[in-house]
Design a protein around this nucleic acid. Structure first.
Lengths: 189, 189
DNA sequence: GTCTATATGTTGATAGAC
DNA sequence: GTCTATCAACATATAGAC
């Protein structure tokens, strides 16, 4: 081990952390295992002790992302007003406006890229998008909105869409404007 | 030449056509020059007579896509009512619902992928998105909408967003539902 | 568990005969 | 202008010493 008894190496975590960052910034295809090894400070050959394939690594990235968002949602679910829960989600997205303008929405861009390259793993990314859509829709249901399904899709698509447009135009203000509008819309419901 | 006097080879066009299709279906990175050569029936080595680099080829693909959409828009611009022009755009997108669910919006997915891989060419794809946003916004201006900018962004993002969500969930009905809603919205303006 | 060296495969791009 | 053969670079993944 090299760390003394009981002390577990954090290399696996560091690899996931670097992979998460680099996949988002440069994309899955353009990030080599060597890039991830260098960024995380783990020697190239050692990466394969933790992840047999690059696909296993991206699967771990998606799994962790999924865990993180579900955990956040569990916290939001404790807020009594569903409107306020949606505002929390919008604020989270808003806080990422700069990174979204530079690299796109982490979930949306990953779905789109993996879909074209790794159909097996893509299902897990797509599952996360599905989960988000359903969570958002549930908030409208709890508001007793008859058109909860439509509103859920509308809000999810608006979030994804402003990510794509902001990324293409490299302008965080686009995320700002669109999320501002969405917040007003939600508050007026 | 091999075709007799004056007869120009259509290889260049066929290469662009195949590249357009394959880049959309499989993505830029996962489509090799060999794939394009095979699909278009042009021998591998000959591709480089028409396009010095793969980047030149994708640039030609974007240029042609841009020409096509601008030409379509010029036709729509002859329609007196801006609402009807937007409906035309929505109908075009609707007609691609199956391909969008399978491979994503051709413009949106190309912007996102190239952005992460080929910054120089990406600008041209991004420019197309910018052009579309401005064209849509102009329609709202001609409707004398005070919030034309906001509506333009809103509609563009909604279109892109439903593409991303439909692609993730592999469900053309998502495009159908969201575009149906958008058409109603436009008509009621 | 860790790391160096390397096998193996694929790709973009070129050389050069025709 | 066309096409075959091939180079050079780079990526994933493995072998095997430590």
């Amino acid at each position: 081990m090299g760390f003394g008894m009981g002390r577990v190496s954090d290399k696996r975590e560091r690899l996931i952390e670097s992979a998460t960052k680099l996949f988002h910034q440069a994309g899955f295809k353009d990030t080599s295992i060597a890039d991830i090894a260098e960024d995380s400070g783990v020697p190239l050959g050692n990466v394969y002790y933790y992840f047999k394939t690059k696909e296993d690594l991206v699967a771990a990235v998606i799994e962790q992302r999924t865990e993180n968002i579900k955990e956040e949602a569990r916290r939001w679910d404790k807020i009594p007003d569903p409107r306020q829960r949606l505002i929390k989600l919008l604020d989270l997205q808003l806080s990422m406006k700069n990174s979204i303008a530079k690299y796109g929405c982490p979930i949306g861009s990953m779905c789109q890229e993996l879909d074209k390259e790794r159909p097996p793993v893509a299902r897990e990314a797509d599952g996360l998008m599905d989960w988000v859509l359903k969570w958002i829709t549930r908030q409208f249901e709890e508001m007793r909105q008859k058109q909860a399904d439509q509103y859920g899709l509308q809000l999810t698509a608006a979030l994804q869409g402003c990510g794509v447009v902001a990324n293409a135009l490299k302008d965080p203000k686009i995320v700002e404007r669109e999320i501002g509008r969405l917040k007003t819309w939600i508050k007026e419901m």
